[in-house]
Amino acid sequence: MRRVWAILVAGVFLYFLIGQFLPIIPDFGNVDLFTRVAFDIINKSTTSNYNSVEFKKSKDLEDGSANVVTSIVVNYRSFDTLGEVSVLFCAAIGVGILASMLKSKRRIEFEEHKILRTSTGIALPLILLFGAYIFIHGHLSPGGGFPGGTTIALGVLLLMLSNNEFKVTDVAKHVEQSAGAGYVVVGLMGMAIGGVFLMNFLPTGVVGNLFSAGVVPIVYTFIGFKVGAELSNVISDLREG
C-alpha cells in the first residue's frame, strides 16, 4: 500500500515537472545571457559602463577577481555566504549538542596499520598544503573557501584513521569562533569605512594577480579556516561523542 502511494505521489510530481514546468524554461544551452544579470556580472559593469575585461591588464575595476563565481559568492552576494557560514555553524553546534547527549559512551576505534601510518606522514602535509592553496587562490582558480576547508578536514580525518590517539582539541573551537567573528568584523569594517555593510573597501588591483580583488582573499581565508575547523569538530563528535 505504501508503494502504491509512493508511485502515485512521485508520478503526480513528475507529471507536473515534465508537463508544466519543462515547457516554460528555455532549452538546454539556448540561453541569452544578455537578459540575465549574469551578463553585467561577468563583465564587471554593474555600476559602470560596459568595458571588456582583460586578464592581467584591467586595473581597478569594481571587482577584481578573475574567477567570476567567486566574485558573485564573496562580493556581489556576500550576504548569502554569511548565511551559509551560519548554517554550517549551527549544524556543527547541533551535532555537538546532540552527540554529547548520547548516553552510551562509545568511541570508534580503527585497526592499526603500519603502511597507513607511514604514508600518512607523507600525504598529510601535502593534503593540508593543497587545501590551503585552494582557498588562497579562490579568486584565481576554481575552488574557494568551502572546498579548501573540506580538504583540510579530510586531512584531519586521515590523521584520525591512521592514529587512534589523535584528538581534535579545543583549538579547533577557538579557530572556528575567531574565523566566524572575523567574517562579521570584515563586514562591519565595510560599514565603518564605506557606510554600507559588507562593502569591499580594499583596492581591487589587477585582474589575475594574487594580491587583488580587495577583501575577497581575506574572506575566503576566514571561510577556509572556519569550514576546516567545523568539519573536523563534526567528525570528531560523530566518532566519540
Binding site: V37, D40, I41, T46, T47, N75, Y76, R77, S78, F79, D80, G190, G194, G195, V196, F197, L198, M199, N200
Partner: peptide
Amino acid sequence: ILEVGKWPAAYGI
C-alpha cells in the same frame, strides 16, 4: 532600503 555592499538592487541583495 539598504543595498548590501552598495551593489544596485538587481545585481546584489
